[in-house]
Amino acid sequence: MTDPTPNAPVATHDELEIQRRNLLLAGGVAAAAAGIVAPGRAKAQEGSQVPPPARQPRAPAGGKSPWGYDTWKQATPQPVSIRPGEAPLPQQPRAYTDIKSYHAHVYFDEDTSQKAALLRRWVSERFVVELGDWNQVPRGPHVTPSFYFGFTNDLLHVILPWLQLNSLGLTILLHPNTDDPRSDHLYYTAWINRSQPVNGYGMKKPGEGEPPVELIYPNTKPFVPIET
């Protein structure tokens, strides 16, 4: 293959070095024009750069916070107890006979309401319980829709395993009834499937003249034998 430019002069080593330096210089000028600074130069210029002032949010014209403008000065309140009404550590265990009955709270939402309806029918067909109304919205300490049924102690050994096998994946709170409803809902509980929050913050023991323990009045007439 013949050389297309046989008479072109051949650059010397020094000439090639000069061309390389010119290209590097040209690249540095272009980078500076584009706002790109070499790492060494960026460090040198770091102290000389002044950040722009922070932009303050503008409040709506004529508006005013309903909380005022001195909330940051308020002292942090210290309640009498982190959990109002909570008793100190007991000196000895409670007697299991303090449990007078049990409640089961079955939770559901718009995606699981059909499962809840089926489970509710199964319970009423098989067990002598006090079946409550539908709670389509949160009620009492329960933060989601639910229904409830109460039963006496002699049914615990049957209802608990039955619910474990027939929960249909629903969250169920099973708690005893003693004279301390707050502890009943928060500390003495048994959960089937996952647990969920219970708002027991304001629950108190029964007052003077009130029944010491919530009573159970069965209102179902079962007609289906329990599966064994």
Rank of each mutant, 00 (worst) to 15 (best):
K64T: 15
Q196F: 04
P77G: 03
G47Y: 09
A61C: 13
K73S: 03
A54C: 05
A61Q: 15
A32V: 06
W134L: 01
K205M: 09
G35Q: 11
L186E: 06
E17T: 06
P181Q: 06
P225I: 00
P84C: 02
P90H: 09
L215K: 14
P53R: 03
E17C: 01
V224G: 03
W162R: 04
D70W: 04
A95K: 12
T171G: 02
P52S: 13
R126T: 13
L170D: 01
V128D: 08
H185R: 01
H105Q: 08
R41H: 10
Y188P: 00
P9H: 06
G47S: 12
Y102M: 08
R121L: 13
T171V: 08
Q19R: 10
T189P: 02
R21D: 08
L186R: 02
K43Y: 00
G169C: 11
V29Y: 11
F127W: 04
E15I: 07
A116F: 01
Y148T: 10
T112V: 12
V224L: 07
I216T: 15
F149I: 01
A33N: 12
T12V: 01
V80W: 00
Q19I: 09
L168S: 03
Q114F: 03
V50W: 05
A104Q: 00
L118E: 14
P4S: 10
V129C: 02
Y69W: 11
Y201M: 06
D179V: 01
D180R: 06
N193V: 11
S124H: 05
E86F: 05
F147N: 00
A30W: 13
G169F: 10
E15S: 10
P52D: 12
H13P: 05
V123T: 01
K64Y: 09
T97Y: 09
T178A: 03
H103I: 09
A190W: 12
P39H: 11
E110Q: 13
Q78T: 12
P51G: 12
A75C: 05
P212W: 08
T178L: 02
F151W: 07
L24F: 08
F147S: 02
A38L: 11
F223Q: 08
P77A: 06
A59W: 07
P181H: 05
Y148S: 10
F149N: 03
G200K: 02
T5G: 11
F149G: 02
P53V: 04
I192M: 00
E86R: 13
H175A: 12
D98E: 15
S81A: 14
P222T: 10
G28T: 11
L118H: 14
Q114I: 05
P9F: 05
V37Q: 07
K73A: 06
V106S: 01
L163W: 01
D184Y: 03
S65G: 09
T228N: 12
P88S: 14
W72Y: 10
V29G: 12
G68S: 08
T2I: 12
H185Q: 14
Q114H: 05
V37K: 07
L173A: 13
N177C: 12
T228W: 00
L174H: 08
T71A: 09
P6R: 07
P93Q: 07
Y107R: 05
L174T: 07
I159M: 08
W122N: 08
S101M: 02
N166C: 04
V10L: 11
K64A: 15
P52G: 15
G47W: 07
T220P: 04
Q91I: 09
N135K: 15
P222D: 10
